[in-house]
Amino acid sequence: MGEPTESTVGGVPGTAMPTRTPLADVTNADDGYQVDVEFPGMKGKDIDVEVSGQELVVSGEIKERGHKVILRRGTRHTGRSEYRMRLPGEVNTEGVKAQMSDGVLTVTVSTTEAAKPVTS
């Protein structure tokens, strides 16, 4: 099994919309990968998880909040966040699971039988 390759380049292909790349941890095991992606302030229903071939894309958007008074200082992130990575080897696109807890989305991606290491 090779190493996963992540993209930290912001931007949605085909648009001029800038994005933020969220922090993530990637763990691999004999049966696949676990990717923990930080999406503080987002709900699970606002996050999309896509696996196409060997590419995993996790994205979401925090809408700008309407303020009834003048905002003097704003440092909280609003807008699109996107995390992309290329998984080494074939993955089971039907076996992708995602669960949100405390602002962290945990995505589990299983590898296909052909991509699993052979043990003797």
Rank of each mutant, 00 (worst) to 15 (best):
2 G>T: 03
3 E>F: 08
4 P>Y: 06
5 T>L: 10
9 V>Y: 05
11 G>Q: 06
12 V>N: 00
15 T>S: 12
16 A>F: 09
16 A>Q: 05
18 P>A: 04
18 P>S: 06
19 T>Y: 07
22 P>M: 00
23 L>W: 00
27 T>Q: 09
27 T>I: 08
28 N>G: 02
28 N>A: 08
32 G>Q: 05
33 Y>C: 02
34 Q>L: 04
36 D>P: 01
36 D>W: 02
38 E>F: 08
41 G>H: 03
43 K>L: 09
43 K>T: 09
45 K>G: 03
46 D>G: 09
48 D>P: 04
49 V>D: 10
53 G>A: 08
53 G>I: 10
54 Q>A: 14
55 E>D: 13
55 E>Q: 14
63 K>M: 11
64 E>T: 15
67 H>T: 11
68 K>W: 10
70 I>S: 13
71 L>A: 14
76 R>D: 10
77 H>D: 06
77 H>S: 12
78 T>S: 11
79 G>S: 10
79 G>L: 10
82 E>M: 15
84 R>P: 08
86 R>L: 12
86 R>Q: 14
90 E>K: 13
91 V>H: 07
92 N>G: 05
95 G>P: 01
96 V>R: 05
96 V>K: 07
98 A>N: 14
99 Q>F: 12
100 M>G: 05
101 S>P: 06
104 V>I: 13
104 V>Q: 10
105 L>S: 08
107 V>G: 00
110 S>A: 15
111 T>N: 02
112 T>R: 03
114 A>Q: 13
115 A>N: 13
115 A>L: 03
116 K>L: 04
116 K>T: 01
119 T>L: 14
